[in-house]
Design a protein around this nucleic acid. Structure first.
Lengths: 105, 105
DNA sequence: CTGCTATTTGGCGATTTGGCCAAGAGGATG
DNA sequence: CATCCTCTTGGCCAAATCGCCAAATAGCAG
């Protein structure tokens, strides 16, 4: 038996790790990319056109999403294709929308 | 009938707004606060002790969460109590965990 | 009113982020 | 081989973030 008074909370480090993943989503361009990838895999050039920023900027966004485990990449020929690894992140949107709606009554 | 080629995507501004909400969650201390508030309302002093930073720092975290619509506050006597407005944000954690697990096989 | 407590706000440095440009890496193609 | 093409990386700078301390605010007690 453990000490009963200890709160059943994840360790401090777990919150830091979660924050890293959530932070990777916390940018308009990256949300746009995730939204587009929910429709299927896309190459960097397609995502660059979508986002409308320099390809190097988009590449860095993708790198961040990849490091966070949200997307995976695969090189085929000259192009690199990205896809969602864990589509459950799409479920966020519905909740986020309800937070936004709750904020403006 | 609308132009069929137009993608059924939320407008650009929607992604910026979503990003603001997600960004408010994207910090270890704020995630810890949200986790604690899932157990019930808490005053700033309790949350300050939990987080372990200066009370002014915690107050600013709470202010950010409030501005994003994630928490609401209520003053009673000298204390200010915070509570979750939209508990669905707790559902994030399960998905985030699966992203983290997917990242380390 | 004076003092005490709980919280917020302002301001300051240190660090991080996000954009662009330029340069590099790595395949395909001739 | 040289060249083209797609993407990544490094560097730079402006802006945002996060912590602390100090000062301001607000409610309660005397």
């Amino acid at each position: 038996m453990q000490e009963l008074k200890i709160k059943n909370r994840p360790p401090r480090e777990a919150f830091a790790e979660r924050a890293r993943v959530i932070k990777a989503l916390a940018h308009p361009s990256r949300l746009l990319i995730v939204d587009e990838l929910s429709r299927g895999e896309r190459c960097v050039c397609e995502l660059t056109e979508l986002v409308g920023h320099d390809i190097s900027t988009v590449s860095k966004h993708l790198s961040l999403l990849r490091q966070s485990g949200i997307v995976a990449d695969e090189k085929r020929g000259l192009q690199v294709f990205y896809r969602l690894t864990t589509p459950c992140v799409l479920n966020f949107f519905a909740c986020i929308e309800s937070v936004i709606r709750a904020g403006k009554p």
